[in-house]
């Protein structure tokens, strides 16, 4: 059932990204360097407002973000020269924190259209129905779900399962999961994490887990952990770095982390870059 996917390496070099707010360009990413090789899982952790999501959306090609310097390549191909849909067909996938409602477009129609685009041909209907049904059942989704409009009236947990359903069906080369853990209860977090782990078990998909908390790392163990502060990677290390963040928060990176990295269930608060942590 698994569609074999050759891996690919995503290389981000000195990436600078701006967003226009109130008529002025504001630089959010200030020089990001990151390499994701096939089969690797990277966790990107950082306080709110550090630019983690901007990285995800800029790589996916969201028009709101302007790349002002740097390069992004996938196996040497210039990602920044590609349109949004070309990037997805090249093998990039973004699981969104806030998936968008598309009224009147059913989940089944959407999934089949996406699979057709990514695979380059329409999957055979009978096989596809089976494939979709099995993937939904693994994510503990009700079969009736496929007749609903995309994301319309979905609960937070349903939206995230739907994102991971797409991840499993589309089998990208590199998947960026933007705060997939946020707003999930323990059961949903387990189901969603198992989905991500099934994709990882294929051994070729590179995974970038963007998260504020270490909670999801109890389910998905990363090979690398990066601390993202003020629009760039401040420190990189192995899984032990996550434990350190769990214990000490982001204070040592010069930001006032009002919530410790491991703060389960605590409200997230906006953190202004440059505010020095209190003693």
């Amino acid at each position: 059932m698994t569609v074999p996917t050759a891996g690919a390496t995503l290389e981000i070099r000195d990436l600078h990204v701006s967003v226009e707010t109130d008529g002025a360009d504001k630089e959010i990413l200030t020089g990001v360097d990151l390499t994701i090789r096939p089969g690797e899982t990277h966790a990107i952790m950082g306080p709110n407002g550090s630019g983690k999501s901007t990285l995800a959306y800029a790589v996916a090609g969201h028009p709101k973000y302007t790349v002002t310097a740097g390069t992004v390549t996938l196996d040497g191909e210039d990602v920044l020269a590609m349109s949004i849909d070309e990037r997805a067909r090249a093998g990039l996938f973004l699981a969104m924190q806030y998936p968008v409602e598309v009224p009147g477009v059913s989940v089944s129609n959407f999934l089949r259209s996406a699979a057709t685009a990514i695979r380059g041909e329409a999957p055979k209907l009978r096989l596809w129905v089976k494939e979709q049904k099995e993937a939904m059942s693994r994510l503990e989704m009700d079969p009736g779900f496929s007749e609903r409009s995309v994301n319309e009236g979905f609960s937070g947990g349903e939206k995230k399962r739907h994102e991971i359903l797409q991840l499993e069906l589309l089998r990208p080369k590199v998947a960026i999961l933007d705060e997939t853990d946020s707003g999930l209860d323990v059961d949903a977090l387990r189901v969603v994490s198992e989905g991500v782990n099934r994709v990882r078990a294929g051994g070729t998909t590179g995974v970038v887990l963007i998260t504020h908390y270490t909670r999801i790392l109890n389910y998905i163990s990363p090979d690398f952990v990066h601390v993202f502060v003020k629009g760039r990677i401040a420190e990189s290390g192995g899984p032990e770095l996550a434990d350190e963040l769990e214990a000490h928060g982001y204070a040592k990176y010069g930001v006032d982390a009002l919530t410790p990295a491991g703060g389960r269930g605590l409200p997230t608060s906006p953190v202004l870059p440059g505010v020095v942590a209190p003693a």
Binding site: A60, G61, H62, P63, S83, I84, D85, R87, A88, R89, F93, L94, M96, P99, V100, V102, F110, S113, A114, A117, I118, V150, Q166, L170
Partner: peptide
């Protein structure tokens, strides 16, 4: 964006 980010 959402649809195109899925290759459509």
């Amino acid at each position: 964006f959402y649809l195109r980010a899925r290759g459509i």
